[in-house]
C-alpha cells in the first residue's frame, strides 16, 4: 500500500465469543481521501470501525492482522494510548445523534465541556469556540442553537452538533458510521455536503460507512464492499458502480437500477 496512506488495515481479523466476525480484511484510507465501507447489518462494518477507534465491545477483540495509523502500529494499544489517539487523531460520529447527548444540558454547554476537558480552554473561551464550531458546520444562528436543549433540535442539527464535538480536537480522520441513515433524505443531503466541505476546509480524511451504496457514491472516491466479514469487492467508486464484479455488488447496483429513482433522473439529465 502506498506511502500516502494514513490509516491502513492489514489482514484484520476480529473475533467474538462465538468465533471470527471479520475475516482478515485489508483496506487503506489515503491522506485527505474518502473511503466508503458498504455492507448490511452483520457484515462487520461497524466492528471494523470500532476496531479503528479502539472501542470494540467486551468479549470482542482484534486477533489477527494490524491497524496502522500514520505509520504507527495501533493494533495493540493500551487504554491510555487510545485515549490520547481517539478524538485527537481519529474521531467518529454514529447513527441516532440524540442518544449521545445529555437531554438536560444545552448543546452549547456539552460542546464547551468537551473543549475544556480535551483542549484545556477556559470556560469563556470554550463557549466562544463552541459557537464558532457550530457556525463552521453551517448551522444558522449558532449562538441560539448553543443555548438550546437536544429535544429542541432536529435530527440534522443534532448530527451537526455531534460532528462539531467529534472535530473539537482537529482530528485527521473522521469516521461516519451510518451517520445519515436516520435522517430524512433532504437533511441527509445537507449532512453529506457538510462532510464533503469539512474534508476540503480541514484537510480531513473521511471513512463513510453505510448500508446504501448510493450514499457512499455521493462522497467517496474509494469503496470497500463488505459481506459476512469479508471484502467482496474494492476499488475506485466509479469503477465499482459502473462495472461491479461480485454478485453481491451487482445485487446492490440492481436494487437501484430496478427499484430506484435512477431511471427517472437519467431521463431528467437527458432532457
Amino acid at each position: 500500500m502506498s506511502d500516502t496512506a494514513l490509516l491502513v488495515a492489514r489482514d484484520l481479523t476480529i473475533t467474538g465469543p462465538a468465533g471470527d466476525l471479520v475475516h482478515g480484511i485489508s483496506f487503506a484510507l489515503q491522506r485527505g481521501g474518502t473511503l466508503g465501507i458498504v455492507g448490511e447489518s452483520g457484515s462487520g462494518k461497524s466492528l471494523t470501525c470500532r476496531s479503528l477507534l479502539g472501542i470494540l465491545p467486551p468479549g470482542v477483540s482484534v486477533t489477527g492482522g494490524s491497524i496502522e495509523f500514520d505509520g504507527r502500529d495501533i493494533t495493540a494499544l493500551g487504554y491510555r494510548d487510545w485515549q490520547s489517539l481517539r478524538g485527537t487523531h481519529i474521531s467518529a460520529v454514529f447513527q441516532d445523534p440524540g442518544s449521545y447527548l445529555n437531554p438536560s444540558i444545552t448543546v452549547g454547554k456539552q460542546l464547551a465541556e468537551v473543549l475544556r476537558v480535551k483542549t484545556g480552554l477556559g470556560r469563556r473561551a470554550a463557549t466562544v469556540r463552541a459557537v464558532e464550531l457550530l457556525a463552521s458546520l453551517g448551522l444558522r444562528d449558532p449562538a441560539l442553537v448553543s443555548l438550546q436543549y437536544p429535544h429542541e433540535l432536529s435530527g440534522g442539527m443534532l448530527q451537526r452538533v455531534l460532528i462539531a464535538i467529534a472535530l473539537c480536537e482537529n482530528p485527521q480522520v473522521l469516521i461516519a458510521d451510518e451517520a445519515t441513515t436516520a435522517l430524512d433524505v433532504t437533511v441527509q443531503a445537507e449532512v453529506l455536503d457538510v462532510l464533503a466541505d469539512l474534508r476540503e476546509s480541514r484537510d480531513l480524511s473521511l471513512i463513510l460507512v453505510s448500508h446504501d451504496l448510493a450514499v457512499v457514491a455521493q462522497v467517496c472516491d474509494e469503496v470497500v464492499v463488505l459481506r459476512d466479514g469479508l471484502i467482496v469487492e474494492a476499488g475506485p467508486t466509479a469503477r465499482v458502480l459502473s462495472d461491479p464484479q461480485h454478485t453481491y455488488t451487482r445485487l446492490l447496483v440492481e436494487n437501484h437500477a430496478r427499484y430506484g429513482i435512477e431511471r427517472y433522473t437519467s431521463e431528467l439529465a437527458d432532457a
Binding site: 433524505v185 433532504t186 451504496l213 433522473t265 439529465a269
Partner: peptide, 17 residues
C-alpha cells in the same frame, strides 16, 4: 423537487447544492 434533488443515486446524481 428538493426531495428528488436530495436522493442519492449511483450516478452521484443528487442535484448540486
Amino acid at each position: 423537487r428538493l426531495l428528488i434533488g436530495s436522493a442519492p443515486t449511483l450516478t452521484g446524481g443528487a442535484a448540486d447544492r
